[in-house]
Design a protein around this nucleic acid. Sequence first.
DNA 1: ATGGCTGTTATCCG
DNA 2: CCGGATAACAGCCA
Length: 276
Amino acid sequence: MPELPEVEILVRHLRPRVVGERIRDVRILRARSVWDTTPRQLAAALPGRTIRRLTRRAKYLRFDLDDRQVFLLHLGMTGRVFVTAQADAHKHDVARLQLTRADLVFHDPRQFGHLALGEDSLRGLGPEPLGRAFTANRFADALSRSRAPIKVRLLDQSLVAGIGNIYASEALWKAKLDPRMPCGRLREAEVERLRVAIVRTLRAAIRFGGGLSLDFASTNPVDGLFYHGSGSRRENPSEHFDVYDREGQPCRRCRVPIVRIGLGGRGTFFCPRCQS
DNA sequence: ATGGCTGTTATCCG
DNA sequence: CCGGATAACAGCCA
């Protein structure tokens, strides 16, 4: 679930709940989820500090503290972050930060997420797709030097930061581009179409997420950030995405059944008629 | 019930 | 340098 839009919604939810709060204590419950430092260092650096800012960079949450230290949190595939008054740890809790009167919990069953002290993890990231640096020139230039399928490149965070497997398929459908198209073969107009499609897709997803009532603490994929699972768990089977997880269902533009293929080892969905 | 799928990304190869 | 495969892991679903 957590790609750029989901992380953005999470940050907006958390911001009023954590900014201005003092960190009283830190419990690291899974050492291997701490990167760029030791759990001991992280647990020592935070207590006594006040959270000054909470922002998003790509799929990272960025916490700025009152002593200019920074720590980052990446949700991986299944990470959740929420504030709770309950102080007891649960299975798959990675870390718990005791704030003034509640705990900030990082919960991550599949353990692909991480915490990091400092900004090193942000070094290699490309431009924010919703920021000014995501220009036609820069995007076209980066794409021109690759022969890989465009869908695979969209997942490269150094090209543009924040797109994941779901919104890569969604943006390509919006731009009417075949996900298998080698980057270098895209024409200038197609690259620009894709750039605009990315921006619109992500903005629409943030707008969509902002209108949901989410249970950030829930382990139920239907209630949490907005990927609604597949099969019987799906909340709105065909309302939500245009192509993702819609294999066999009609394209919203031309009614031809959506196709699923593998690209770069990931499920990829597209309309074989519109996207060619 | 078992095995194959999954929203991420670092790292290792050729 | 580029690109593909793999690994890290637990839970859900067929």
